[in-house]
Lab assay of single mutants.
Amino acid sequence: MLDDRARMEAAKKEKVEQILAEFQLQEEDLKKVMRRMQKEMDRGLRLETHEEASVKMLPTYVRSTPEGSEVGDFLSLDLGGTNFRVMLVKVGEGEEGQWSVKTKHQMYSIPEDAMTGTAEMLFDYISECISDFLDKHQMKHKKLPLGFTFSFPVRHEDIDKGILLNWTKGFKASGAEGNNVVGLLRDAIKRRGDFEMDVVAMVNDTVATMISCYYEDHQCEVGMIVGTGCNACYMEEMQNVELVEGDEGRMCVNTEWGAFGDSGELDEFLLEYDRLVDESSANPGQQLYEKLIGGKYMGELVRLVLLRLVDENLLFHGEASEQLRTRGAFETRFVSQVESDTGDRKQIYNILSTLGLRPSTTDCDIVRRACESVSTRAAHMCSAGLAGVINRMRESRSEDVMRITVGVDGSVYKLHPSFKERFHASVRRLTPSCEITFIESEEGSGRGAALVSAVACKKACMLGQ
């Protein structure tokens, strides 16, 4: 009897593995994704193909990295998701002549009506938060230079001027797309009239992360975010950046690689679950690469896999709870928690219980395998993109072996128990001629924006502006 049951459990697990095998990517698959990513990057950089390229390769006008001589107080704003952060950054000489960066910050959550109302409502709310922060720190009387981390696709015309191309991540505030974001912020500050600010720089969160990590390690020339969304930036040779005049030196390019796949480059790798996630998203047909990796989508992918296993009578005796059938019910943090389970399955059992399920031991094991399959594919897909960037940098610099540091931020990278190990191992397999160091950014977005502002202020002083 026991043997029969054991055989049935083994057969069930084997069927589960057959279904989950769809998520496995072979090294040849990853090399294919990497080569296609490089081709799209090239198209994004070139003037004649930029418009139709899915990977936009947006110039950021960040050319210099901090040298350690900029000092002063800077205000930093960070808008990239449902939370908005205001930070005071003091850049100065530390002990023994070292450079020191001290920060104080406060988080504000953005109400739904500000995210989806008008641009005026959104930026009025942001300036209200700045006003509140300055009151708390008794700094209303000071006109501070301000660095703005704005983590949406922007076409820069200068370091302090950028046109919002399109909202992502659930934002829909009308009247912002096609307009200068810094102008919208300046107008809102003017409307309030109770404080003055000098907006000197606007950067993407990947750029802010790279600059913040450069402060720790001067070989950091790539910034990457794996959180709600997924994106990367890197220092490109100016001669390859056709959208900006000049051939000397390097400029940081914001790849906006989340949109890779929007022209069909990933079609052969998309599964039924991916198509369902895409169809029910706020932007169907867009940001397809990001939807395979980002935390906004990972939990939902797992939920759809679990429903398939229920329908195949391989999980929960073929019956799903009402909660499990509800879109968004299986949160991405559950994926991390399930994979963090120590082996007694308590954590998995508790999560499934909150979803109205009474799982068996085998159910718990199957749910864990589903989570591992989805998150491992995410790590491997992400590795193909980064390997594409790094191999490109090595080739354009004609280096036999390139040493490089990548600064990384984002909740999936930082909080998932195995993502970074799987990701690092896969990147290294795909970049055999590179020695890569990964560092995690601390308060990256805010500190990085302030350091970019410090560079901009120093330049302005040198130019006598």
Rank of each mutant, 00 (worst) to 15 (best):
D160A: 13
S398L: 10
K31R: 07
F419T: 03
I159E: 14
A6E: 15
Q18F: 14
Q239N: 08
H424L: 06
A173P: 06
R429E: 11
N254Q: 08
L451Y: 09
G147F: 01
E339I: 01
S212Q: 01
T228W: 02
T362H: 05
V200L: 05
D78Q: 11
A387M: 04
H137W: 03
N204Y: 02
A10H: 15
E421S: 14
V389W: 00
I163A: 11
G407Q: 03
E236D: 03
F330E: 00
R447Y: 14
T437P: 01
E421H: 14
I293F: 14
G97L: 09
I293D: 11
E279W: 03
I439T: 09
Y413P: 08
L271S: 04
S398W: 05
V181C: 04
M8D: 14
E196D: 03
L352A: 01
V452M: 12
E312K: 15
S109Y: 07
G328L: 10
D132N: 05
A329N: 15
R358K: 02
Q138F: 13
L25Y: 15
K31S: 10
G444L: 14
R428T: 10
E322Y: 08
M121K: 12
E157D: 15
T228V: 06
R192W: 05
V374P: 01
H380P: 00
T168V: 12
S151P: 12
E331S: 13
A449K: 07
Q98E: 13
M235T: 04
L430W: 09
K140W: 05
H156A: 15
T332F: 11
R85F: 09
L307D: 03
D4V: 09
F330H: 06
M8H: 15
G81A: 15
S109K: 08
Q18S: 14
P284Y: 13
F419M: 08
Q24R: 15
S212V: 07
D400V: 07
I211Q: 05
E256D: 12
H424Y: 14
S151G: 08
L276I: 14
N204S: 07
R46Y: 09
L315K: 00
Q239W: 09
K136W: 06
I110E: 10
S174E: 06
L386S: 06
I348K: 05
F330K: 00
S445I: 12
A370D: 00
R447T: 15
R5M: 08
N180A: 05
